[in-house]
Amino acid sequence: MHRSYDTAAGYVLTSSNTRKEALAKLTEKIAASNRGLPAPSAQGSVAVYLTYWLDAVAVHHLRETTHTRYTAVARLYLIPGLRRKKLAKLTAKDVRTWLNQLRTTCQCCARGLDTARVEPLCCAAGKCCARWLSPLTLTYVHSVLKSALEHAVREEEIPRNVARNVRTGTPRSRRFEPLTADEARTFLAATSGHRLQPLFELALHTGLRKGELLGLRWEDLDLAGGTASIRRTLQRTNSSGLTALPTKTKSSERRISLPTPCLHSLEQHRDRQLQEREAAGAGWENSGYGFTRPDGAPVEGSTLTRHFNALLRQARLRRIRFHDLRHSTATLLLEQGVELVVIKELLGHAHIGVTATVYAHVRLRLQRDAIDLLGHALRNPTEITGKPDDEPPLAGAAVR
């Protein structure tokens, strides 16, 4: 095994252990060079390495939607803030200083949004609107940098990932407003007669994600057995348009039971779709999806959101996100005493810790209710009835 000493960095560089590994690395670098990508080097800038990592590495390992978000983060925050830093000389202090500056920088001004307006409203007008990044966005930006530097460590460009030594704090989870049981009944009543009524019923009864609902094919629905197989998600991407993608995680690919009301609605929906197919004739697009437009084409996620918002207005309910139907399902199940592991399997979470963390506030409220019930059962009978101890209470309190 060959070793060389880098006097500038002050550490030992170890080359690949085998000829096969060295050849694989060389092939990857040559392929990247042929595509016009800059060759990464520890002596090169962080911006050059980020470009290489996104275009030659991450593109093959990330979902397209995730890669698009990573690219936007690099373009808006990472490259402008760290472009002059050398990859080999980047320190944890540099990363912390950059994050602190990013935390207090008005994005309206930094990205030139204000100067592009006909009438400036922010810094160009002499008054800053303080449009800062949210803690959640700041943590996401930091995570993208950590992923890029982690790959640089694996390629032996740098000895350690300095971004891991910087703490951004744990941001508060995004707040969601699930429907109450009364609001859920009101919403379901408003969907009656709507063409996509079975989809909304399925969303509220099972907690499926929007893309999972739109990606259901009839072959995935076993109406006789009362089950649905979640195998894909339907999303719009920049390169392929509306396309079927793998589920969010491996755990998201699952089979769930369908309640009886949803089975009846799906059977009626299938009959209606057959009638639409006959009416469309040659203009029918045989996409195979369970929920389609009247011509058989897949339904866009934005179109479903418009229908959802219209139904909320019709039912005079507060405005929530479509994803909050998923939270509503989990919250209502928890309130009915369903075990956390069952909800985890239904929602397709990778770990039960995710389910427990997201719905911790619901579990805390249920614990408080249970403690109050127990406290009521343990109270002295005289405190309840106001009678002497030798007179038994008229009835015992039931404990749930």
Rank of each mutant, 00 (worst) to 15 (best):
E64D: 10
L266M: 11
T331H: 08
V57I: 12
A152W: 03
L221N: 06
S229T: 15
R131N: 14
H323Q: 04
T66N: 04
H376F: 12
A224T: 07
G10D: 09
A148R: 06
S302E: 11
P120E: 10
I79G: 02
H269D: 07
K210S: 05
R306N: 02
G193F: 04
T66C: 13
L149W: 03
R365C: 13
W53G: 00
R255W: 02
L149P: 00
Q268P: 10
T91F: 04
L54P: 06
Q43L: 05
Y5D: 05
R164Q: 09
T180G: 12
L87C: 01
H205M: 07
R96N: 12
A163F: 00
A189I: 01
A181T: 07
E212Y: 08
A88T: 10
T305L: 12
L373C: 05
T115D: 14
L179G: 06
A124C: 15
E391S: 11
G241T: 01
I79A: 06
Q268R: 15
A181Y: 06
R69V: 13
K29C: 12
R175H: 13
H349T: 08
G81F: 14
G353C: 12
L258G: 11
I158Q: 00
E253V: 07
T27I: 11
P171R: 00
R400M: 09
